[in-house]
């Protein structure tokens, strides 16, 4: 994916807000692959990822008015939409799945690294970077970022004090920044 932008982010946002079809085509051509990669890292299923993709672009279309450039880049905003939509989809899927329809408490003991980090997608994107973290940190980022659990839920899941969860996640994130550079 090139960064040969023909629009500045400001121009692009303004065109998107005017429902300019060309701007959306441009948006898709420039960002779809990056967003698809993020979706794939969460849902780990190409078919599901395709569905989420469509939902993400509809969401971008619907919510473009809510995007506030003062609070961050357009890509960051879209990335979070993609992540949220992916986690929501996964949640609704696994909720339908009777196998997983046990309470958290039942799950805690059997929660393994292999359960949370599926094979296949760990070689792309952030997941690849996460490989370089210590396993205890990786599990926490996995649960927080890719599974969307709150810190409180993770503390309960991992039988860990909330403060420890917060500190470890922060430390993992600081390392992540270094790894991304």
């Amino acid at each position: 994916m090139g960064t040969t932008l023909t629009y500045t982010e400001q121009e692009l946002v303004s065109l998107l807000r005017n429902r300019d079809n060309k701007a959306y085509a441009y948006l898709y051509d420039n960002y779809a692959s990056a967003l698809y990669s993020i979706i794939l890292q969460v849902v780990n299923d190409t078919e599901l990822a395709s569905d989420v993709m469509q939902e993400v672009f509809v969401n971008i279309w619907r919510r473009i008015e809510q995007y506030d450039p003062a609070k961050g880049r357009l890509f960051t905003w879209m990335m979070n939409i993609a992540r949220n939509a992916s986690i929501d989809t996964l949640r609704s899927r696994s909720y339908q799945n009777s196998r997983k329809n046990q309470s958290i408490q039942d799950n805690v003991d059997t929660l393994q690294v292999n359960d949370v980090i599926q094979p296949g997608v760990d070689t792309i994107g952030l997941r690849k970077v996460l490989e370089k973290l210590k396993e205890e940190q990786r599990i926490l980022i996995e649960l927080a970022y890719f599974k969307g659990y709150t810190h409180e839920e993770i503390a309960e899941l991992q039988k860990m004090p909330l403060g420890t969860v917060k500190t470890r996640i922060r430390n993992a994130l600081i390392q992540l920044r270094g790894l991304l550079k």
Partner: peptide
């Protein structure tokens, strides 16, 4: 950080199935 995240995501991009583009753009 946003920029480095974006650049990393761009570098790690995975092309979605080609047909999605049509579906998405028609939908919009």
């Amino acid at each position: 950080f946003e920029l480095s995240l974006e650049q990393h995501a761009m570098a790690a991009a995975v092309a979605p199935p080609a047909h999605i583009r049509e579906t998405v753009l028609q939908q919009l």
